[in-house]
Amino acid sequence: MATLFLDILTTSSMLFIVAAGLMIILGVMKLINFAHGAFLTVGGYSAHVVTDAGFNAWLTIPAAALVGFVLGIVVERVILRPLYDRPLDAILATWGLGIVIAQVITFIFGRGVQFAESPISGTADLFDISYSSWRLILVLVAVVLGAALTALLYFTRFGLNARAVIMNENLARGLGIDSVKVRALTFGLGAALACAAGALITPLLSIDPNMGLPWLVNSFMLVLVSGVAIPGLALASLLLGGAQVLVSTFVSPIIGGITIVVLAAVILRIKPQGLSRG
């Protein structure tokens, strides 16, 4: 029972961490970033490079975030800016970007599986059972991340500007907010979060050119179900992640893999705006 509870909690935390970057971008920019999976992969490879160079494994996370931020700024400028009024095309363009990133990674690192050192390995004892330490740390990371993003949106100048752009971009521009800058920074932030998430999940996964892909669709579904809000995303991660663990445990792990997609499709049919709205 305790294991099941921890499975749900840690799986949800991973989903939350992985989906956060996608949500920030969708929230502020109204843009679905299908390169999200590729960004996760970039994060994984950043971790590989950092530990391969002999640095401390904890450094992988800020390093990946930095790489993601720079990548995000560049991608926003080159690819996304012309597509702001064509949201469906933006999905396709970012998907194409994902293909390109995967190929570039293959050129540099080859097709094989790479490895990065984990900051922590082994298990910790909790509720009389031993449980993966890293997974428990991810719960902590998810909580901190949720709080930090909320703080960023509600207590900083950037957050105020971003919220203004979300609510009414023309008005925000009229008020002298540089919405172009807000968008660029947002995409940088979203990409940074995605890459950091990639580094965060590598201790549990292999690093290969397609490692991020399976996470893309699930993150996308979670973000839509969340209604694009931080508490909504937490709730969606818990509900759908929990459902996935339950189905995997009690029905079949194979069916478990589509739980999130199916539930999301149903929830969005009933509540098109997701859990946070109307």
């Binding site: 690819i79 012309p82 597509l83 095309d89 396709l92 363009a93 194409g96 390109v100 190929q103």
Partner: peptide, 10 residues
Amino acid sequence: VGVAFVVVII
């Protein structure tokens, strides 16, 4: 193909 796709979309 990936690059061509992105360029064409944009």
